[in-house]
Simulated assay, not measured.
Amino acid sequence: MRASDRTRPAVIVETAPTPNGDLHIGHLAGPFPAADIHARFLRARDRPVVLSTGTDDSRTYAPAAQRRHTCAR
């Protein structure tokens, strides 16, 4: 790694949370802890880190799953 790379912030963007059913182990063992662990590792090595996440309001599977669930009753 070049010396200039050590001073540039590492940007880590977690995947957007998704409403895909009931709470399951994937919520705990998925990408969120991995991104946090990686950020902590870099910070421990004195690298500046920007850790971010967001939402995606244009996903279509949530409304489609809701229609399937509603129509199945």
Rank of each mutant, 00 (worst) to 15 (best):
R2S: 10
A3S: 10
A3Y: 02
A3P: 04
S4Q: 13
S4Y: 05
S4C: 06
D5F: 02
D5C: 00
R6K: 09
T7G: 08
T7R: 11
T7Q: 08
A10W: 07
A10H: 10
A10E: 09
A10F: 11
I12E: 00
I12Q: 05
I12T: 09
V13I: 12
E14C: 13
T15Y: 03
A16M: 10
A16S: 06
A16P: 03
T18M: 01
T18W: 00
T18N: 00
T18V: 03
P19D: 04
N20G: 12
G21E: 02
D22E: 11
D22I: 02
D22Y: 09
L23N: 00
L23F: 04
H24D: 13
H24R: 12
H24Y: 06
H24P: 05
H24N: 12
I25W: 04
I25Y: 08
I25F: 07
I25P: 07
G26W: 07
G26T: 03
G26A: 03
H27Y: 01
H27L: 02
H27E: 00
H27W: 01
L28T: 01
A29V: 08
A29H: 07
A29D: 06
F32R: 13
F32C: 06
F32L: 11
P33C: 10
A34T: 15
D36P: 07
I37V: 15
I37G: 12
H38F: 15
H38S: 14
A39G: 14
A39F: 12
R40S: 13
R40D: 12
R40Y: 14
F41M: 15
F41I: 11
F41G: 14
F41Q: 15
F41E: 13
L42S: 14
R43S: 14
A44K: 15
A44T: 15
R45E: 15
R45H: 15
R45P: 09
R45L: 15
D46C: 11
D46A: 13
D46V: 00
R47H: 15
P48I: 12
P48V: 13
P48A: 10
V49M: 12
V49H: 08
V49I: 14
V49D: 12
V50R: 08
L51Q: 12
T53M: 09
T53V: 05
T53Y: 09
T53C: 14
G54H: 03
G54S: 06
T55F: 04
D56G: 04
D56K: 01
D57A: 05
D57W: 00
S58M: 05
R59A: 02
R59K: 06
T60D: 03
Y61E: 02
Y61Q: 02
Y61C: 01
A62Q: 08
A62E: 09
A62L: 06
P63I: 01
P63L: 01
P63T: 04
A64S: 09
A64G: 00
A65M: 11
A65T: 00
Q66C: 05
Q66S: 08
R68F: 08
H69S: 10
T70W: 01
C71V: 10
C71P: 00
A72P: 00
A72T: 04
R73A: 09
